[in-house]
Design a protein around this nucleic acid. Structure first.
Lengths: 184, 184
DNA sequence: GGGATCTGATTGACACGTCATGCACCTTAA
DNA sequence: TTAAGGTGCATGACGTGTCAATCAGATCCC
């Protein structure tokens, strides 16, 4: 987790009003977060970091794989032949190309996937699910799904699930809007 | 991905009903996620991963620091003397002890913080904010806060902020409930 | 056909996180 | 007071993620 990072905060600025003396960088009027926004934001960050930490722990314990492994394996499983072009897989995962390349190399060492040359394109490479990889994902899935259900969906009302969906959609739309330079 | 990783998914199982033939591991009736739940979950994971990726990019561009650096610096700034015991800092960040130890070592190399011995406890260590560290956080904060405001809070209604808070609270409560073994 | 250029993918360097381990120092209780 | 156990922190090994560089194979176009 992130396998990720982030259990976080904001500098001391008083609610609403501009900071006392600290960030006097550019002569700009910084729109600080309100106390409530700070609280919500910190909680959000804590939730996401803790969730990924625990999903990783649980997957490691159950099946010896990481959440990243799980994601890759799921996408491959979703495919008829259990094989996908590297670029396409990266796009589906919203991963950077090189991240996937590194990750596939590691998974290959563990026998979870294999690489194949691509017939139509000499540069291309296919990532192929191995038997072992398939076994792993089938072993891991039930407990992982159960974890997500128990720790997330079982805790939320229908309305909250709707809200979460709307929130994620809004934020992603915003990110897509100004993050045109490389989509990551 | 980690801070983490995760743009993810679930195996192919049909909505609601148990899987066709795949995960027949333990003779358990797995409660798969509905199509809608899968969609929401994937979107949530994508939102969180993208947000952290972009927060990191933005902080790196603006001030040459990571989100993790930012978090550490903020907590130190929140303190009168700009110094905190390692364990206490780790608890406040909800970080593992060793993660903080490694991170402080890296930040120390860059001159953002320093280590000090602890007077009352021979084992203790204090992390101290340096002038350079204070300068960094003051330089980074306005743009970071603006980023969060523009990409998150400006996109949400009051009701959605409330919902996000309630969701995070519920999930964190659940995590705290069964994750008693080591709080991370 | 043969350069300029684009595209798919890998690689290396390096920051980051986790787990297990080690160890110094404190605390306790006999 | 001293051995046993606990606490605070650092470290090593290793998997992970990012960016920049590289490179081979495709494409374009004169």
């Amino acid at each position: 987790m992130s396998i990720r990072s982030r259990g976080d905060a904001f500098p001391t600025p008083p609610p609403e009003v501009p900071p006392p003396a600290a960030p006097a960088v550019a002569g700009a009027a910084v729109s600080w977060l309100t106390r409530r926004e700070q609280r919500v934001w910190r909680r959000y960050l804590l939730m996401t970091s803790q969730l990924t930490v625990w999903m990783n722990r649980q997957l490691a314990a159950e099946a010896g794989i990481s959440l990243a492994d799980y994601d890759v394996l799921v996408r491959l499983t979703d495919t008829p032949e259990g094989r996908l072009r590297v670029t396409k897989l990266a796009r589906e995962l919203s991963w950077e190309q090189s991240r996937l390349s590194h990750h596939v190399a590691r998974m290959q060492r563990r026998g979870l996937v294999a690489r194949e040359e691509c017939a139509d394109d000499g540069r291309g490479a296919l990532v192929v699910l191995t038997e072992r990889g398939r076994a792993m994902i089938e072993q891991a899935a039930p407990a992982h799904v159960a974890f997500v259900r128990e720790h997330v969906f079982d805790m939320l009302t229908e309305a909250q699930v709707d809200a979460l969906d709307a929130i994620a959609t809004s934020v992603l739309t915003r990110l897509a809007a100004d993050d045109h330079p490389s989509s990551a």
